[in-house]
Computed example of a mutant assay.
Amino acid sequence: MDWLERTAKLRQWSRSGTRAPHKPLLLLYALGRFQEDADGALRYSAVEQDLQRLLAEYGPPNRTTPAYPFHHLVSDGVWEVRTDRGPGSPGSGVRDLRETGATGRLSQDLRAALRREPALLGRIARLLLDLHFPPSLHSELCEAAGLELEPAETEGLSTTRRQRDRGMRERVLTAYEYRCAFCGYDGRIGVVPVGLEAAHVRWWAFGGPDDVENGLCLCSLHHKLFDKGVLGVGWGSPRSSEAESGGGHRILVSQRFIGHSPAAREHVTALAGRPLVGPQPGTRPVAAAHRDWHTSQVFHGEPRPATAA
């Protein structure tokens, strides 16, 4: 059976280019949970909120329910549902799924195929991402779904496998009150934050923990520049007004970064020496050990001198 072909042909409602990524999102989430527990089943009432958040952030703008894909994905041969009464989905109604104790999991044949060929999981996931979402969303969507997709160049490395904590993003964004620690950006669509991400200071691949002391809430642009070594976090003696906000942490901008446009100056070079927008009172700021790791292992060259206010 060609599982990639079956994945590419998921039955979806469509009209005039309208997006309907309900089934792909459920399948990505199920693949992530399979990585954690290959024998586990997903009780609808226990995962409904997770699935609803995925739909709210990555689905269409109209209100929808995860009950729809939970029921209808069965018809594609990649998913199965059982209730307290036995095999089979009770329908696509939220109440039906809740009251019957409905649980879902990848189909038996697909689970067997993934056990025989572990690399198949990554190929299915990447196909779903490529078919239904722009590349700019792939990394954060994998994190939100709990998926671990190893880069091709690291396949031969022998490392101890750890499980990411899917709750880190929410904890970090809450700690920083949904504001970018570098520029203060705090955009939302309705109640859903857009363009805000939880950045690891010490990279997870190099032992960085999934906790707030190793995290920064950053906008998408500054997260990318932070991971590229254009931006960093330094330490300086804060004035009293700064101690409350950034706790003495200041933004580093690499001298190697070149940008002549007004946008590059405003969004990057002008940040040099500014205090961080720190976490809310009572929350510990970035730990010195993680900050120092990023400075020595990621940040490029020497920092620019502070820019005049």
Rank of each mutant, 00 (worst) to 15 (best):
residue 138 H to D: 06
residue 173 L to R: 00
residue 220 S to K: 00
residue 190 G to Y: 02
residue 93 G to T: 13
residue 225 L to D: 04
residue 46 A to T: 13
residue 267 H to G: 02
residue 231 L to W: 09
residue 198 A to F: 08
residue 237 S to T: 09
residue 112 A to D: 02
residue 94 V to C: 06
residue 255 Q to C: 07
residue 275 P to Q: 11
residue 46 A to R: 13
residue 237 S to E: 15
residue 152 A to Y: 05
residue 64 T to C: 07
residue 19 R to Y: 04
residue 282 G to V: 07
residue 24 P to L: 07
residue 58 Y to Q: 12
residue 109 D to K: 06
residue 106 L to Q: 09
residue 117 E to K: 11
residue 82 R to F: 07
residue 279 P to Q: 01
residue 3 W to H: 13
residue 272 A to M: 06
residue 228 K to F: 05
residue 250 R to T: 05
residue 217 C to Q: 00
residue 78 V to F: 05
residue 36 E to G: 08
residue 175 A to C: 01
residue 221 L to F: 02
residue 263 A to H: 00
residue 67 A to C: 07
residue 285 P to I: 03
residue 27 L to V: 12
residue 116 R to P: 04
residue 93 G to Y: 11
residue 300 H to Q: 14
residue 101 G to S: 01
residue 95 R to G: 03
residue 185 Y to C: 05
residue 243 A to T: 12
residue 148 E to F: 08
residue 80 E to P: 05
residue 9 K to V: 02
residue 108 Q to A: 14
residue 143 E to P: 13
residue 137 L to C: 14
residue 160 T to V: 14
residue 279 P to H: 01
residue 75 S to G: 01
residue 286 V to C: 08
residue 28 L to E: 06
residue 143 E to L: 13
residue 304 R to E: 09
residue 20 A to V: 08
residue 270 A to M: 00
residue 225 L to W: 02
residue 303 P to E: 10
residue 145 A to T: 14
residue 154 T to K: 12
residue 27 L to P: 13
residue 142 C to K: 11
residue 300 H to I: 08
residue 280 Q to H: 05
residue 294 H to N: 02
residue 94 V to D: 09
residue 261 S to G: 14
residue 297 Q to D: 08
residue 203 W to H: 10
residue 307 T to Q: 10
residue 42 L to Y: 05
residue 18 T to K: 15
residue 16 S to Y: 10
residue 306 A to F: 02
residue 20 A to F: 14
residue 245 S to L: 12
